[in-house]
Write a protein that binds this DNA or RNA. Structure first.
Length: 940
RNA sequence: GCGCACGUGGCGGAAUUGGCAGACGCGCUAGAUUCAGGUUCUAGUGAGUAACAUCAUGCAGGUUCAAGUCCUGCCGUGCGCACCA
């Protein structure tokens, strides 16, 4: 393994981390802040000792990391991958002249601390604080340029006070479908028949964006809590993988479905990866179709209930609907079931209810169902079609009922085959584009309608899209159906039965007249509402959440009782990026000024169109390249939050936007998912495989700069890639070469000797080092300038495109070149340090200060030195190499003047030595010349 | 099953609009330095050949003067969704 240290990173790194801390080098200034004398930010801009107005500040750049849950296990190598990328960009943007906001905090509510509390009785806050301290130590040891003055923790009462406040904003709002916006509940107009106080209250409560609902929810026995749809994966809890069951419970729910359309449309205004947008689109699951009413034949029911409404995306296949299927939970099932079928239907319903959802989906290969004995009438042809119930129809989607078209839907087809139901073909595949019915005989694609006529309307011959439109219009005109849009997205189940979460600022009272319970918001003055002190964190014996144990807390003197559920962990992470803007504000969740500077157009160079959904959005995005944008300019984090956190945060942001609290419709303009880092064996890192790499170990051996550099050199940020400790050694050697370009090697030996007997402080040890004598104040040769400026160009362009790995390789090329120089010009070497600085900040700060003092100069922190620009003129070659091909095969390279005309190039190519054997005796048919690129001689 | 990515040396990965495939790093080979190991430095390193030729970007076709890059069809890997009508 490695052995001697390449350079004294163990002294340099703590030294500069302490210096940055003491100077608050990376503090970001808000409008209205006064910039201390001597702060490097104030030195770069004319702001030292002054109060910064928004106009005097440079343009803002907001670079955000997904804040971690501070687990007991500490940091793993995946965390620093994203954090290093954002830190490099933050430092780069600072150098480029932006006011950079780059904060860090803790998503510190969470299950492990609570489970530990249940086991040991230790308060979760104690565990959490210890974990935060450890995470802080680890993150600080990597030298990230966070503004620690904005550090926050979701468990801090001064933080969750505003989480509760935002909940109250949501609670006190309703969604107005006419304006397509959230509005204060006070704008809600009561229907005329709402006269009593109780009726009005019930009406309001039915419209709030936060409402209480008794509904089937996912209950996880192991975790002792309910979970949101998004937290249930394959019938198991996302956290821990425990079984979950469907259980009706009274819970708080947020009306995210009201925003489905906007959550979908506004994806077009932001710069996320296609795959991420696609995941959100799939989760929202918009589908356009029609609702169609089927009358029930021989109906004994009251008129209003005498029809079955189905949802279909293929109304064009209505003539092929040969039966109806209701979900077993459909409310009409019991009413329509015939006497003969009653027993069978009951048995099936019981069987289905017993199955967990896991069984219902996993064992669904075989279709099951029961005939109800009832019939419906197909509205287009009056055919009597049987009504079945089957668990392949979900109660929770659409109308909970479908029309089955076995000829054109695979699931219906399987069901029809099994139960011998009729199959009628009404769509012919378009064979001209290679469509054919599947091997089973079922064709689910689009084609041309057939067998679809009833004397009043005919769809025959129409392509699917036209047939859909025609039949939908016809149904609407007859009052038999209408165009409908459905979403898979469900409302967000927002309450949990836990202790370690934000208590709801809600109390329950009883209506004096009716005795019915109702909920009421606490006033803002009651915030933060702290959870009670407990010694036992388990749920109560009767199954109530742990908060119910605190009787004094729950029962208020005026007879009201507190809500005992708590909010899910997502609540705190839904808005933390806003709190960073103004983290210490005691009178608002964020001040207007701070919000408008960092998130609005005030701090950025360009305006924002909240829902510009235009075909040229791509070019609009391209134009923003390099400019700052409204909202968070760049958000980097793991793909595991593709639907949960990112959907919830967008939802809250839109509510806050509608209510006028924030100035953009979207929170995160550009988002990048870092790829997973696998173990050295190419497998996912896990304790059980024993392939987990602990950053602390890497740091001890190679230092933070090498660790950072390696994380970026491994490959593209977004890719999944395996860890390789040998690779760390490679970049570590590179940093050693950089060090030795500047520091005399002999002095290192002296330094090492001094260190072994050292009793002196670290700073004295570093004093033994002397500048490498090859660095001198000489002017650079054209060749040296070319190497430097090529490096500036490459690193700059790569950083603009987040291509860290190739930027590093460009710097390696520079160092390989510079190694061979007899004399290294001061100015060239100084500029190179600036390029490397965002990647290896400790090493470069040390060399930067050492280089300047060696040449009798004083320089402030490298962190605010202006980014170098390159001179294209220096990169122009007077003579260039052009490859010569014969018949497309590369044969030789010719050197010609850069400005040579085509005739000169062709002549030179025809003379090319190695091409001669392939030209002799052949006729040249054509010569293709791409100026400055290549020559191809075509012979026959 | 559906959707979205992606397949390049022994390995991680480079390759503007199609224009010298394999930058940079790891590993490996040889040499120098060293008592020695390590470190450092120098040279080499896709296959193949004495050297050329030739063959090489998952497979099979196609477009083109020219294809890793564009098109079609397969095969494989990863991620997401999964009875959503």
């Amino acid at each position: 393994m490695s052995s001697r240290r390449q350079y004294p990173f163990d002294l340099i790194e703590p030294k500069w981390q302490r210096a940055w801390d003491a100077e608050q080098t990376f503090r970001a200034f808000n409008p209205g802040d006064s910039v201390p004398d001597g702060h490097p930010f104030g030195l770069r801009y004319p702001l030292a000792g002054k109060t910064a107005s928004a106009a005097a500040l440079p343009p803002k750049f907001y670079i955000l990391d997904m804040f971690p849950y501070p687990s007991g296990a500490g940091l793993h190598v995946g965390h620093p991958e994203g954090y290093t990328a954002t830190d490099i960009l933050a430092r780069y943007r600072r150098a480029k002249g932006f006011n950079v906001l780059h904060p860090m905090g803790w998503d510190s509510f969470g299950l492990p601390a609570e489970q530990y509390a249940v086991k040991t009785g230790q308060h979760p806050r104690v565990t959490t604080e210890a974990n935060i301290a450890n995470f802080t130590r680890q993150i600080k040891s990597l030298g990230f340029s966070y503004d620690w003055s904005r550090e926050l923790a979701t468990t801090d009462p001064e933080y969750f006070r505003w989480t509760q406040w935002i909940f109250l904003q949501v609670y006190n709002s309703w969604f107005n479908p006419e304006t397509n916006k959230a509005e204060p509940i006070s704008t809600l107009k009561f229907p005329t028949d709402c006269t009593t106080e109780e009726q009005r209250r019930a009406f309001r409560d039915s419209k709030r964006l936060a409402y209480v609902s008794e509904q089937p929810v996912w209950w996880c026995e192991e975790l002792g809590t309910v979970l949101a749809n998004e937290e249930v994966v394959d019938g198991k809890s996302e956290v821990g993988g425990f079984p979950v069951v469907r259980k009706p419970m009274r819970q708080w729910v947020l009306r995210i479905t009201a925003f489905a359309e906007r959550l979908l449309d506004d994806l077009n205004t932001i710069e996320w990866t296609d795959s991420l947008k696609e995941m959100q689109r799939n989760w929202i699951g918009r589908s356009e179709g029609a609702e169609v009413d089927f009358a029930i034949a021989d109906c004994r029911l009251p008129i209003a209930d005498s029809k079955i409404r189905v949802f279909t995306t293929r109304p064009d296949t209505l003539f092929g609907a040969t039966y109806i299927v209701l979900s077993p939970e459909h409310k009409l099932v019991d009413q329509i079931t015939s006497t003969e079928q009653r027993a069978a239907v009951q048995a099936y319903k019981t069987e289905v209810a017993k199955k967990s959802d896991l069984e219902r989906t996993e064992l669904a290969k075989e279709k099951s169902g029961v005939f109800t004995g009832a019939y419906a009438l197909n509205p287009v042809n009056g055919e009597k079609v049987p009504i079945w119930i089957a668990d392949y129809v979900l109660a929770s989607y659409g109308t909970g009922a479908i029309m089955a078209v076995p000829a054109h839907d695979l699931r219906d087809f399987e069901f029809a085959e099994k139960f011998h139901l009729p199959i009628v073909e009404v769509v012919q595949p378009d064979k001209s584009i290679g469509h054919h019915p599947g091997p089973t005989g079922c064709f689910a694609g689009e084609g041309f309608a057939t067998n679809s006529t009833n004397g009043e309307i005919s769809l025959n011959g129409l392509p699917t899209a036209e047939a859909k439109a025609k039949i939908t219009t016809w149904l609407a005109s007859k009052g038999l159906g209408k165009k409908t849009i459905n979403y898979k997205l469900r409302d967000w189940l927002f309450s949990r039965q836990r202790y370690w979460g934000e208590p709801f600022p809600i109390v329950w009272r009883r209506d004096a007249a009716t005795g019915q319970p109702y909920h009421e918001a606490l006033p803002e003055s009651a915030l933060p509402l702290l959870p009670p002190a407990l010694t036992d964190y388990k749920p109560t014996a009767s199954g109530e959440p742990p908060l119910a144990r605190a009787k004094d807390w729950v029962n208020l003197p005026d007879g009201a009782v507190r809500e005992v559920n708590t909010m899910p962990q997502w609540a705190g992470s839904c808005w933390y990026y806003l709190r960073y803007l103004d983290a210490k504000n005691g009178s608002a969740f964020v001040s207007k000024e701070a919000e408008s500077y960092w998130m609005g157009s005030a701090g950025s160079a360009i305006g924002y169109r909240p829902s510009a959904i235009s075909s040229d959005s791509q070019s609009a995005i391209a134009n923003r390249q390099g400019a700052t944008t409204p909202g968070v300019d760049l958000y980097v984090g793991g793909t595991e939050h593709a639907v949960l956190h990112l959907l919830y945060a967008r939802f809250w942001h839109k509510v806050l936007f509608d209510l006028g609290h924030v100035s953009t419709a979207e929170p995160f303009f550009k988002l990048v998912n870092q790829g997973l880092i696998l173990g050295e064996d190419g497998q996912k890192m896990s304790k059980s495989r024993g392939n987990v790499v602990n950053p602390d170990d890497v740091l001890v051996e190679f230092g933070a700069d090498a660790f950072r550099l390696y994380e970026m050199f491994m490959g593209p940020l977004q890719d999944t890639k395996p860890w390789n400790t040998r690779g760390v050694e490679g970049v570590y050697r590179f940093l050693g070469r950089v060090w030795r370009l500047f520091i005399e090697e002999k002095s290192e030996t002296a330094f090492e000797q001094a260190q072994t007997v050292a009793t002196q402080p670290d700073a004295d040890l570093l004093d033994h080092l002397v500048m490498n004598g090859t660095i001198a104040e000489v002017s650079a040769t054209p060749a040296q300038l070319k190497v430097l400026h090529a490096c500036i160009k490459k690193v700059t362009e790569d950083l603009d495109h987040l291509r860290f790995n190739t930027a590093i390789s460009a710097m390696m090329v520079f160092v390989n070149e510079a190694n061979g120089w007899q004399s290294r010009p001061f100015a060239v070497m100084r500029t190179f340090l600036q390029l490397l600085a965002p990647f290896a900040p400790h090493l470069t700060e040390e060399l930067w200060s050492r280089l300047h003092s060696a040449f009798g100069q004083r320089a402030p922190s490298l962190s605010y030195a202006a980014w170098p620009s390159y001179d294209p003129a220096l990169l122009v070659e007077s003579e260039i190499e052009i490859p010569v091909s014969v018949n497309g095969k590369h044969r030789d390279v010719i050197r010609v003047p850069a400005d040579a005309d085509n005739a000169t190039i062709e002549a030179a190519a025809r003379r090319a030595e190695k091409a001669q054997p392939f030209l002799e005796g052949k006729t040249v048919r054509k010569v293709i010349i791409v100026p400055k690129k290549m020559v191809n001689i075509v012979v026959g």
